[in-house]
Amino acid sequence: MLTEALLIALWAGIAGIDLFNGLTHIHRPVVTGVIVGLILGDIKTGLIAGATLELVWMGMVPLAGAQPPNVVIGGIIGTAFAILTKQDPKVAVGIAVPFAVAVQGLITLLFTVFAPVMHKADRFAEEANYKGIEKINYLGLAILFVMYFVIAFLPIYFGSDAAIKFVEIVPKWFINGLSVAGGIMPAIGFAMLLKVMLKKEYVAFLILGFVLAAYMKLPILAIALIGSAIALYDFFLNKNNAAYREEEINDGI
């Protein structure tokens, strides 16, 4: 079982990276199902379990940054237990739920602790140290890989009951608190952007954009189009004025 568990964990690590990076979608259950089936020597059940779980996750996609239940762990552990326990994959996926939740918690943690790392990246950028920037990104990939590897390995090697104890080490209040903080944190990113962009003469447009989104519930594309309309109007008005002034000066001479 150790070899199979290690191979599945390896695949979970790769698929976990693909969920955010690469995005070739080898991480979808319809693909991971057949790979897990191949590792456990039952391709046919793997295919069917993967397809079933694919339909479960259809529509559960990352919209506007909100994270749905983890599709990688759900698909892989769901398929593995469907094959190992000869259960219906829809029932087997229930075993994956605590592990999918654990991965989500760890991802929340990762996205929070990586915020301070950005200030290291700022320093690298200032020094034009491009290798430093590259290393920070590779570090992110490595952490993702290890996380998925461990979480997929535990239930398959130790059995789900024993493994649940491992994943419940991190207290819920901590992860939930981080997740709330994570939702607010873009405010810091925007504040830093405003620090360099905002000048008195532009405050009006910041207010406009906010009102269009908050009160009128307009999508960002609509706001960008309205912003473009004003920018174009302003641009040509300035240009014509400049041309007009030039003409005046020429006439004067």
Partner: peptide
């Protein structure tokens, strides 16, 4: 900047 800041207002 006009365009960018209207979008930032919406993003906030």
């Amino acid at each position: 900047s006009i365009l960018g800041l209207s979008v930032v207002g919406g993003l906030i």
